[in-house]
């Protein structure tokens, strides 16, 4: 064979660059499918907006905003006699009953909401994918045990458990994200991923891999998991929504040890008795709207991804 392109050929391209190019091509084709859906684009736009919103806070604090006045936790504007104060040129969304800038609080909290959503989603999906793939691959007693654990998790009323947890111990942002990730229901995701794994498991390429000498680990991680990842990614989006929502609920009850979050902003409003006062809308509305919009954004991206992942939903 003299005509083959051997590694010494002039046109030889290293393997990793070929892989990078293939990855880029896959990203482009998937993006084309995703971009067809206006809902997904809108959701992605919202997420990007919130991302920039979060990034802008440290920049504003270090340049335009005076830290003493605009600090989201300890700031106080002594020039204004009565707090809370309605929106003004100095405080675009007004100040809260403790004299802190609402816009600054809103922006400061965004990064934590993102981190919380992402950490808990990754934890959930990691657990769900491992359980789904392992249960489907091994079957038998392993399958039964893992699936009963999943049933248990589905049954657990996780919000009351989180409330008890936060009463017993100090629950910061990371702990909360992990708790939500573990408890808030990898159950449903695991079942869906397992059903997908069952259809992958019986494909002849799994047998072909075994005939080549591939062990269980090799088969699960190079053949099964890549075929499960699209669905896992999809469910990740939905878990983010749930996590942000749960955090808001817990913070509203004042059960978390978090400096500032959207739920805590609503909690402050409630504690000072402004929750039913529509003239103080600037206390309640920004945080609630932010929670709703960010949850909706992740959900919309999830729906659009669903169409990319699931060809049956595509209108073609």
């Amino acid at each position: 064979m003299s005509t083959i392109s051997s590694p010494v050929d002039a046109t030889y391209i290293p393997l990793w660059r070929v892989r990078l190019r293939l990855f880029w091509r896959a990203v482009k084709t998937n993006w084309a499918m995703f971009a067809e859906n206006p809902i997904g684009l809108f959701g992605l736009g919202l997420i990007i907006f919130f991302g920039l919103f979060a990034l802008a806070h440290p920049i504003l604090i270090s340049t335009v905003w005076e830290a003493k006045i605009y600090d989201p936790v300890n700031g106080f504007d002594i020039e204004i006699p009565y707090h809370p104060s309605p929106p003004s040129a100095k405080h675009l969304l007004g100040t809260d009953p403790m004299g802190r800038d609402v816009l600054s609080q809103l922006m400061f909290s965004t990064r934590y909401e993102f981190a919380l959503g992402m950490i808990s989603a990754i934890v959930t999906v990691l657990i769900a994918t491992s359980i789904g793939a392992i249960a489907a691959y091994y079957g038998g007693i392993t399958d039964i045990l893992l699936m009963r654990i999943v049933d248990l998790v589905i049954m657990i009323p996780y919000l009351p458990i989180l409330i008890v947890m936060s009463a017993l111990m100090r629950v910061g942002m990371i702990e909360l994200a992990l708790f939500i990730g573990i408890l808030s229901g990898f159950g449903g995701t695991a079942i869906v991923i397992k059903s997908q794994a069952l259809t992958v498991k019986v494909k002849p390429y799994i047998e072909a891999a075994r005939i080549s000498g591939g062990g269980d680990f090799h088969i699960i991680f190079t053949h099964m998991v890549p075929n499960l990842l699209p669905i896992a990614l999809l469910y990740m989006m939905f878990v983010v929504t749930g996590a942000i929502f749960s955090e808001a609920v817990l913070s509203f009850f004042g059960l978390t040890e978090i400096d500032m979050s959207w739920g805590l902003m609503i909690n402050t409003t409630q504690v000072f008795g402004y929750i039913m006062r529509f003239d103080a809308w600037y206390l309640l509305l920004p945080a609630s709207l932010a929670i709703t919009l960010l949850c909706a954004a992740f959900y919309m991206v999830g729906r659009a991804l669903d169409e990319v992942v699931n060809p049956r939903l595509r209108e073609r």
């Binding site: 494909k203 002849p204 390429y205 047998e207 072909a208 005939i211």
Partner: peptide, 13 residues
């Protein structure tokens, strides 16, 4: 020992 499968559409990941 190796094997060639029946269905070329399913025997490759």
């Amino acid at each position: 020992v190796q094997m060639i499968f029946q269905d070329p559409y399913e025997s490759m990941n």
